[in-house]
Design a protein around this nucleic acid. Structure first.
Length: 429
RNA sequence: GCCGCGGUGGCGUAGCGGUAGCGUGGGGGCCUGUGGAGCCCCUGGCCCGGGUUCGAAUCCCGGCCGCGGCCCCA
C-alpha cells in the first residue's frame, strides 16, 4: 500500500512552511498598505465558472468531478473568476473601485517540472471599476513595493500593451485566431534561437515580409522608453495605445518607480483575455516570471455583470520563495524557545505549570514530555534550537529558586522562582 | 500527451548476476542533577509488476514516482 502524496503535490516541512508563510505575510502587509482587502474564496467551484472564461478545452488541465448532487465541480485553477463572480453578485452594494486581495493554492493538471506543480500558491489582487492609467500604476506600484519588501533588489517589471500587435495585425486583416498564433511566437522570443524565432514569426505572418519587418522593429524597441518608441513609430492607430503607455511610464517616473519599470514589447502573456496593459516580473538570473498581470476590461461583463473595467495581478508564491532562496535574501530568523527541564518525577507538575506560566507571558516554551534523564532533556532542548533552559531541581527549590542555563554559552544562573519570567524576558531580549 | 536521465533504510551513498554494507538520523545504554564528545547495542532498505537465469538490487519489458526538456502554462 502506497500512501505517497499525489504526483505534483508537495508536503512542506516546518522550515519550508515557515518561509512560505513569511513571504505570504509580507505580501499581505503590502497589499493592506495599498488598501486591498482580503477575501476568502472557495477552493471548489462549479466547473462552469472556469469554462466561461477559458473555454471547454480547459477541462484537460483541471481537477474535476461530479459531486453527490450531480453537479460538475472543479478545484480552482485560479482566483480571478471567483472574484469576478463575487463582484457581479454584490455589485449593487459595492463602492467603486473595489480593491480585493486573495491568498491560497490553486490546482492545475499539468505535467510537473521545474517550478510547476499541480498544487501551487498564489497571492493576488483585483482592482475592479477603474480604467485609468493611475489604476494600472497602482497595481504595478504594489508589485514593486512587494518585491522590495521581500528583499529583492535586481528585478524588473516588464510592461507592454497587447493592443500594439493586435492593432497592427488587425489592420492587416488577421483575425483574432491568427493574431493569437503570432502572439504565441512572440511570447517565445527569449526561449528559442533567433533563427528559429524569425522563421516561425515569418511563417505565422504568412510570409508577409513587410509586416515581419515592422514587428521586428517594434520588438527592437525593448528597453527603450515608450516616449522614444513613439517618436520613431509611425503607426497612427497605435498612437493612442503608445500614448497611454507613455503616460504610465511618466507617472511611474514621478512616483519614483522608473528604476524598475521597463517597456518590453515581447511580453504578451499568451492569454486571449487581456485587453490592454500587461506585465510580468522577472528577477535577475531566475528563468521564470514570479508575477504576472494586466488589464482585462471585459471580465466582469463576461460573468453577466455591468461593463466595468478591471486590472489585476497574481504572484506565484512558490516561485517567490524559490527565487528568494536562490538569492539568499530570506531571513529565516525565528524566535527561539525556552525549555523547561525537571529533575525528578515529583517535579513534573511544577514543570508543566512553569511552562504554562511562561506561555501565558507570551514566551515560546517547550517542556519535557517523555520523562527522560536531565542529560537527554538538555540534548533535546539543544536539538530544538532552544536558547534557554529552566532547570527545576529539589535543591534550588528548597531555597525557592531555579537555575537558568544559557544553552549557547553553558552559563548558569540561579534566580528566585518568583522572578523567573522577568529574568527570562531579560535574557531573551 | 511526448522525449532524455534516474529510483538501494527517514536522509545521503557503496555494491551493478551469487549471503545488502557504510555514513547520518531515530531509540536505548555506559552516566538515578548538567547536553551537543566518545564507545557499544537496537531500529530500518534494494519503487511496483512481469520476464531472462540454477540464482536478479544488478540484465530485459511495462508501470509508478523524481529531475530536466518539449507541448502548454488561465
Amino acid at each position: 500500500m502506497d500512501f505517497s502524496p499525489l504526483r505534483g503535490f508537495r508536503v512542506l516541512l516546518p522550515e519550508e512552511a515557515r518561509i512560505l508563510q513569511r513571504v505570504e505575510d509580507t505580501l499581505r502587509t503590502v497589499f493592506t498598505l495599498y488598501g486591498f482587502e482580503e477575501v476568502v474564496l472557495p477552493t471548489l467551484e462549479p466547473f462552469s465558472l472556469f469554462e466561461r472564461k477559458s473555454g471547454e478545452e480547459i477541462e484537460k488541465h483541471m481537477y474535476t468531478f461530479t459531486d453527490f448532487g450531480g453537479r460538475k465541480v472543479a478545484l480552482r485553477p485560479e482566483f480571478t473568476p471567483s472574484a469576478a463572480r463575487l463582484f457581479v453578485q454584490r455589485a449593487g452594494e459595492l463602492k467603486l473601485p473595489v480593491k480585493w486581495s486573495y491568498f491560497g493554492s490553486v490546482f492545475r493538471y499539468d505535467e510537473p517540472q521545474k517550478m510547476r506543480y499541480r498544487e501551487f500558491w498564489q497571492a493576488g489582487v483585483e482592482l475592479i471599476g477603474a480604467s485609468s492609467v493611475e489604476s494600472d500604476l497602482e497595481v504595478i506600484s504594489l508589485v514593486i513595493d512587494s518585491m522590495l519588501a521581500l528583499g529583492f533588489k535586481d528585478f524588473r517589471v516588464e510592461v507592454n500593451d497587447v493592443r500594439i500587435f493586435r492593432e497592427m495585425l488587425g489592420q492587416e486583416g488577421f483575425n483574432p485566431d491568427q493574431q493569437y498564433r503570432v502572439m504565441l511566437v512572440i511570447d517565445k522570443r527569449n526561449k528559442v534561437s533567433e533563427e528559429t524565432f524569425e522563421r516561425d514569426l515569418l511563417a505565422a505572418l504568412d510570409g508577409r515580409k513587410e509586416l515581419f519587418d515592422r514587428i521586428m522593429f517594434v520588438l527592437g524597441l525593448r528597453k527603450k522608453s515608450p516616449g522614444e518608441s513613439l517618436a520613431i513609430l509611425e503607426e497612427p492607430k497605435l498612437r493612442q495605445v503608445i500614448e497611454r503607455l507613455i503616460k504610465l511610464f511618466d507617472l511611474g517616473k514621478e512616483v519614483g518607480l522608473s528604476k524598475w519599470i521597463l517597456f518590453s514589447p515581447n511580453i504578451v502573456r499568451g492569454l486571449a483575455y487581456y485587453t490592454g496593459m500587461v506585465f510580468e516580473v522577472l528577477v535577475e538570473g531566475i528563468p521564470y516570471s514570479v508575477c504576472g498581470g494586466g488589464r482585462y476590461d471585459n471580465l466582469i461583463s463576461l460573468y453577466g455583470g455591468p461593463d466595468i473595467p478591471c486590472v489585476g495581478m497574481s504572484f506565484g508564491v512558490d516561485r517567490l520563495v524559490e527565487a528568494a532562496m536562490e538569492k539568499r535574501i530570506i531571513k529565516v530568523g525565528e524566535r527561539r524557545p525556552v525549555f523547561v527541564a525537571y529533575i525528578g518525577q515529583e517535579l513534573k507538575p511544577l514543570a508543566l505549570k512553569t511552562a504554562r506560566d511562561l506561555r501565558m507571558a507570551g514566551i515560546k516554551t517547550d517542556v519535557e514530555l517523555r520523562e527522560r534523564p536531565l542529560s537527554k532533556q538538555l540534548e533535546y532542548a539543544n536539538k530544538r534550537g532552544c536558547k534557554l533552559a529552566v532547570l527545576l531541581g529539589k535543591r534550588e527549590l528548597e531555597r525557592k529558586a531555579v537555575k537558568i542555563r544559557d544553552l549557547d554559552s553553558g552559563e548558569e544562573l540561579e534566580i528566585p522562582l518568583d522572578r523567573l519570567i522577568e529574568e527570562i524576558r531579560g535574557k531573551l531580549a
